[in-house]
């Protein structure tokens, strides 16, 4: 039997869906279809898109590599200040990205608290580099994979890990063969969200890493800059971003994450 939906719910849902879809539809309506190819080459879409994909994938990889252990510590660790740590981890979601960018600047910038040392002792400068764009993007998008994985770990029946220990599995073996595969759906969902957030990152990146085509100018920055020169080009770039994100989310959304 199909669920019967109250009319109020349907009406509000329609309103919500319209609200979300309207800007996307408007982008399609206003796109300069007749000079699409020209607009594309004019604003350096392919360079920005390649950089965006590289930066978002790198940020996702780093987020998973350190975010999953962080989620494990938050879910299983028992230490004073754990709730404080969790709040701090969530902070980048709440903060305006520009604030995150300013924070990164005073921490890791050329004259920042840690960045000064990186620059003077090791000759490493993150600002105005692709690595800096990855750092800024990771900062903003990592909390999503941490939260999703932590929720997965909290929902995991502890009996499985105990059974694995009783079967002779060392702590590391149990984590690798039992814990990790069992939270894989949540981890994957979190990674997809992290990637999507990374692809759309703007504020922290432009504040911390600046805006230079081919080095730090990802798609959102290219859209922002194109607005000044060529509003039509900005719409084209926005559409590309929409199409890429939607295709990946639809393709991965159900299959990989098991959330469908």
């Amino acid at each position: 039997m199909r669920a019967r939906l109250p009319l109020v719910i349907v009406a509000l849902a329609s309103l919500g869906a319209t609200f979300v879809l309207l800007p996307v539809v408007a982008l399609f309506v206003r796109a300069p279809w007749n000079r699409l190819a020209g607009a594309l080459s004019g604003v350096g879409a392919s360079t920005a898109l390649r950089l965006s994909i590289e930066v978002s994938l790198a940020a996702t990889a780093i987020s998973v590599a350190v975010g999953v252990p962080l989620a494990w510590v938050l879910a299983r660790g028992e230490f004073p200040g754990r709730s404080l740590l969790r709040a701090a981890v969530v902070l980048p979601i709440v903060l305006p990205p520009v604030v995150g960018g300013v924070g990164l600047l005073v921490a890791l910038g050329r004259s920042g608290v840690v960045g000064r040392w990186l620059h003077d002792a090791l000759g490493i400068q993150l600002t105005f580099t692709t690595a800096g764009a990855v750092v800024a993007t990771t900062f903003v998008s990592m909390p999503l994979v941490v939260l999703a994985t932590e929720a997965g770990l909290r929902g995991l029946d502890l009996r499985y890990e105990r059974a694995a220990a009783a079967m002779g599995g060392s702590a590391w073996y149990v984590f690798r063969r039992v814990t990790l595969p069992m939270v894989a759906p949540q981890l994957a969902a979190g990674a997809v969200l992290t990637w999507a957030r990374a692809l759309g990152e703007f504020g922290a990146t432009i504040t911390f890493a600046g805006n230079l085509a081919g080095r730090t100018q990802t798609m959102p920055l290219a859209v922002f800059e194109a607005r000044q020169i060529d509003p039509g080009g900005a719409i084209v770039l926005s559409l590309i971003l929409v199409v890429v994100s939607v295709s990946v989310l639809v393709a991965l959304g159900g299959r990989l994450t098991g959330l469908r």
Binding site: R159, Y160, R162, A163, A164, A165, A166, M167, G168, G169, S170, R177, V178, P181, M182, A184
Partner: peptide
């Protein structure tokens, strides 16, 4: 626990759901 020479069949089995029957026994 992993160093105690004990084999245990848990109540309800507690088989690892993500592993096959063979992989469970080989675990």
């Amino acid at each position: 626990p992993e160093r105690r020479p004990i084999g245990i069949a848990f109540q309800d089995g507690v088989l690892f759901p993500h592993l096959s029957v063979m992989e469970n026994v080989a675990f």
